[in-house]
Simulated assay, not measured.
Amino acid sequence: MKPVADVFEEHRGMLFGIAYRLLGSVADAEDIVQDAWLRWAKVTEPVEHPKAYLARTVTNLAINRLRSAAVTRESYVGPWLPDPLVTTPDATDGVELAESVSLAIMVVLESLSPLERAVFVLHEAFGFGYTEIAGMLDRSAASVRQLGHRAHEHVQARRPRYEPAEQQRKELTERFLTASAGGDIAEMMSVLAPDVTLVSDGGGKRRAALRPVLGADKVVRFILGVWQKLPPSPVVSGVLVNGAPGILISAGGEPDTVACFEVADGRVTEINVIRNPDKLRHITAI
């Protein structure tokens, strides 16, 4: 029989992935995984299906945290975006990103109820069956299946129309980065869809729009304003944000801004910008 620590480590990536998708917070997800480990270490009877047992533990801990977090988010300053998972473009490891979802989908998940979100994540991202999930949530299989179908329809209705080729997304990201850094308004406008939306999360701690910015002209003006307010000599790097091409801006050796882009029909249709320093603490400046 494997040592309990080895069994837990074998599933740690999955457990972090579940908690992160439910909470949208790296720090909270890490706390949940640590709490799950403390509970797992105290188990004295043999567990027939450790993966399901640990998934159940993390899911229920995360649902409880999610319900309490909803109260806090009601008083959040400006739009709320999930913590970004940032890696270098050549990263080949990191189970957190192996089954990652885009920041845009994470925002859609935020609009689900805690139970709908849990069922969707467990079924769609990690392949648990509805009967298995029912056991985890202490609900009937029929009710869990209904929750899953409702969540799936909700996400499908709001997810991007199609997934662009990663090379196209990368090229558009690089073009927009070069144009905005150089103040080339014409090139910025050519990359953006006319009805592009920008959502920025500063948490009341850094410059950000309190409401989504709508339209290419307003988005360009907003981004140029952010560039002008950055500390001297910022370092701009192309990175992967939740597995997709994005941008990391560092200043003074600390991460300042993370941005990622949604693309459709050869144009940028949505930009998500995370500037709240609390959401960037886990990121290493490049």
Rank of each mutant, 00 (worst) to 15 (best):
14 M>G: 00
15 L>N: 06
16 F>A: 03
17 G>W: 10
20 Y>P: 00
31 D>G: 07
35 D>N: 13
47 V>S: 04
47 V>C: 05
48 E>G: 02
50 P>S: 11
56 R>C: 05
64 N>L: 13
67 R>W: 00
67 R>P: 00
77 V>A: 10
78 G>T: 01
78 G>P: 04
81 L>D: 01
85 L>A: 02
87 T>H: 10
93 D>N: 09
94 G>W: 11
112 L>Q: 11
113 S>Y: 10
117 R>D: 07
118 A>K: 14
119 V>K: 08
126 F>C: 01
127 G>H: 09
127 G>P: 07
129 G>L: 05
136 M>Y: 07
139 R>Q: 10
147 L>R: 06
153 E>I: 00
158 R>Q: 14
161 R>S: 07
162 Y>A: 15
164 P>F: 05
164 P>I: 05
165 A>F: 09
167 Q>K: 15
169 R>S: 06
172 L>H: 05
172 L>Y: 05
183 G>D: 03
185 I>K: 15
187 E>C: 00
191 V>G: 04
195 D>L: 06
195 D>I: 04
197 T>S: 05
200 S>D: 00
205 K>H: 11
206 R>Y: 01
212 P>N: 04
213 V>A: 03
217 D>H: 09
223 I>L: 14
223 I>D: 04
224 L>K: 11
225 G>Y: 05
225 G>R: 08
228 Q>W: 07
228 Q>V: 03
233 S>V: 10
244 A>P: 00
246 G>H: 11
248 L>A: 10
248 L>M: 13
250 S>K: 07
250 S>G: 02
251 A>T: 11
256 D>Q: 14
257 T>S: 12
265 D>R: 15
265 D>H: 12
272 N>V: 01
277 P>T: 09
286 I>C: 02
